[in-house]
Nucleic acid binder design. Structure first.
Lengths: 211, 211
DNA sequence: GTTTTCTCTTGACACCCGTCAAGAGCATGG
DNA sequence: CCATGCTCTTGACGGGTGTCAAGAGAAAAC
């Protein structure tokens, strides 16, 4: 007994990452349900039903609901903040980057709408539930950096410096994206056709006008 | 019997607006509670507790919770979408308007943060609860018009046409405002000091550059 | 093969929710 | 002055929630 030296709060782990695997498995089911129903309506039972486990297992891998949610958020973040890296890398002119960025925006909106609905839900809930605040802030910063990488590259290609701070630039583009998501949810995929034009109009004004 | 010609779904109204007065009274209590707790956590009992009535009275004046919420939203909207009209009317130069607008933005954020938290909450919830969608969309349009009046006036004073559509302009400013609200909620009132600078940087780029 | 440890299920608990029926209090109008 | 509405309170209902304890079942260790 007590043969291992690594002590953990969660049950002792023999292989070490078997737990993490299950946690990720649960996180994936949870994200599916959360994206569908939103934070308030997604119960642990419903989440478990959409997985291959029963409702009690959640408390074996997570202390409480909040820890599950926060884990989900971080899990999700890990694989989405590099989404525009290809846009940055593969564009050789300012116009090209604008088009690629707009196209990626539309694609993201179309293919992962539930996940983005969840993200905005959680970010809003963080204003009422301080327990969410830390994780949400961290992601928001990461997203801001992601956007800034795009705009910096755009600035280099266009030969004009950015007109706004990274925070304001992110805020502005996030506002456009959020309205796109609202319109998509309300009116269907047809509205996505109008988004590239908005991006084409907005991006240039985010750089200082040519001398 | 049946002496009045105006028929209503709710109980018959002798004076006609006694009901509306109570409804508004309840709406005000509800808005206070909703702003504090958010949509998901604000129960009818809690709302009634924060009023001078008991929890059962809600169903005397509203069919169900959703009708109360929607009524609240519309009630709130009615007295906030004219908030920037003075800014438009009393500014005689572009720079003056920018400063007045920024100041009003900060004031609104500081004095009515709970109400704005609620608004963003409801707008997000409308993506999961279609019953909210109509009311939310209506308000969003009204806010867009409010913003557009400011930017149009700004455009006139500066002698430069707007660079973006009304929808994109609203989306962009709304994004900035929302980030301000998040920062305020997270870090306290100190962050408001930095907002005017962001407004001063952003508003000029919303107009086409001078020829 | 037996014992120990890890996983997961089941079922219960205390609580809170929206809703509604029954009735008390009160004013109004006959 | 009694009767008739209108307001509002009380108390209950069925259902859903997060949480957790007890134990079944499998796997691993010896």
């Amino acid at each position: 007994m007590m043969e291992d030296v690594t002590t953990t709060a969660t049950p002792r782990r023999s292989p070490g990452d078997k737990h993490d695997e299950r946690r990720n498995q649960l996180a994936e089911s949870a994200l599916r349900t959360l994206g569908e129903l939103g934070y308030a309506r997604a119960s642990l039972r419903e989440i478990a039903t959409n997985s291959e486990f029963s409702h009690g297992v959640v408390h074996y891998y997570f202390r409480d609901k909040l820890e599950l949610i926060v884990y989900c958020v971080r899990y999700y973040k890990a694989r989405c903040v590099r989404r525009y890296d290809a846009v940055v890398a593969e564009s050789d002119s300012a116009e090209e980057l604008v088009e690629a960025f707009a196209a990626k925006l539309v694609e993201t909106l179309r293919d992962e709408a539930p996940m983005h609905r969840l993200w905005y839900d959680l970010r809003t809930q963080s204003m009422f539930e301080p327990g969410l605040s830390e994780a949400v802030t961290h992601i928001d910063n990461t997203l801001q950096e992601m956007i800034w990488r795009v705009v910096e590259r755009y600035s280099d290609l266009a030969g004009r410096p950015p007109a706004l701070t990274p925070a304001a630039t992110y805020a502005v583009l996030d506002g456009l994206f959020q309205q796109g998501l609202l319109a998509l949810t309300r009116d269907g995929e047809a509205v996505l056709a109008g988004l590239p034009a908005q991006v084409r109009a907005l991006l240039p004004v985010l750089l200082a006008p040519e001398a």
